[in-house]
Design a protein around this nucleic acid. Structure first.
Lengths: 189, 189
DNA sequence: GAAGTTAGTGATTGAGCACTAACTTACTTC
DNA sequence: GAAGTAAGTTAGTGCTCAATCACTAACTTC
């Protein structure tokens, strides 16, 4: 038995829960499965988080935060075309190495409607605020161009979708999406 | 008590289930709630569909079919810029009048990962096949241009996401997305 | 080394849910 | 109008799962 501080444990729970929620979504994931992945008893999760919803929220916030940081770090000191290229490359890395983060994003977006329906307005607020932060984070380096920003985020959402559906990266549907192709396409215009 | 033929009943079950699954996803939706919406007893659903999964699959297939038809009908007889404009307008109508179809799309994409994890390869195949059909349906009228097709679908996925998150249509984040703005942006280039 | 605190467990509960079985009610056909 | 069939219901079962409770084991501090 490895003892950790509650704070460290909470961290590993968030990591494990990200993977689990990414596949199963909020309702399709049992706290049991998360606990098993962490290597801790199921009731102990409720010492670390007040309830399942709070855990999901923590995971969602982390997911947004990580994505924002990815773009912020990639575009640091760059502008326009260069920033676009850097951010696109950064996202490509996430696709390859952290696909669960993309899936978790979708689970989060989709969970808003369910929460809202049940009178939980707060979750939606959090996610929308996160999206706005994400929006600003890519907007500035792209020269504060609304069209560019929208397009960039749109490609991101398409990528999330293809990953969720399980299209292998070599599949035809990815053709128009690889940064090279995308940026080359833009430069040719 | 209104009696219907099993076939008619199945239709109304699919409609009701679309709304319910759209909000709650597969796991967040009880067959009870679907039955209540249809106005029929919960066990009767299992006379109409072998199990919950089959019902979800039927809803997913219908959702893809409807989307494909929307684009096919909108672009009939048109090409290039005109087809793009027509399909964008058609989708705008769906946003306003059938938002549950967009949400259901996302639920479907996201459900693939969960199904795949549980060894259900079939569901993913169905969804991917549907996506390919959708892809071809917009690809041809857009002049068989891979870049155009990718961009069009990307905007669609972004729209789905914004709808899911519950951003009102007048919100800033929609700015770059209204067909007028989008097409004008393209024309200016 | 005793007292106090923090990390963690095992057993349990009550609710919700997919699905079944057995039965009833309404329409159709001859 | 009796027989057959298709539509629909009531009652119930077994399982899963979030959350609680009462407890133990390991560190910390003096």
């Amino acid at each position: 038995m490895v003892r950790m501080s509650a704070q460290e444990r909470r961290e590993s729970v968030i990591r494990a829960a990200t993977s689990e929620f990414a596949r199963g979504g909020y309702y399709g994931t049992s706290t049991e499965s998360i606990a098993r992945r962490v290597g801790v008893s199921q009731p102990y999760l409720f010492r670390l988080f007040p309830n399942k919803k709070a855990l999901f929220l923590a995971v969602a916030e982390r997911c947004l935060e990580d994505t924002v940081r990815t773009f912020a770090e990639a575009s640091e000191g760059l502008e326009g075309e260069e920033a676009l290229r850097a951010m696109a490359n950064a996202y490509t890395e996430v696709i390859a190495e952290r696909p669960e983060r993309l899936l978790m994003q979708m689970q989060m977006y989709v969970a808003v409607a369910a929460a809202e329906q049940q009178g939980d307005r707060e979750f939606g607020e959090t996610v929308r605020a996160g999206w706005m932060r994400l929006w600003e984070t890519v907007h500035l380096p792209l020269g504060a161009d609304v069209g560019e920003t929208t397009t960039f985020l749109a490609y991101g959402m398409l990528i999330n979708t293809l990953v969720a559906m399980g299209f292998p990266p070599a599949h035809r549907v990815w053709e128009g999406l690889y940064p090279e192709a995308r940026i080359k396409g833009r430069l040719e215009k």
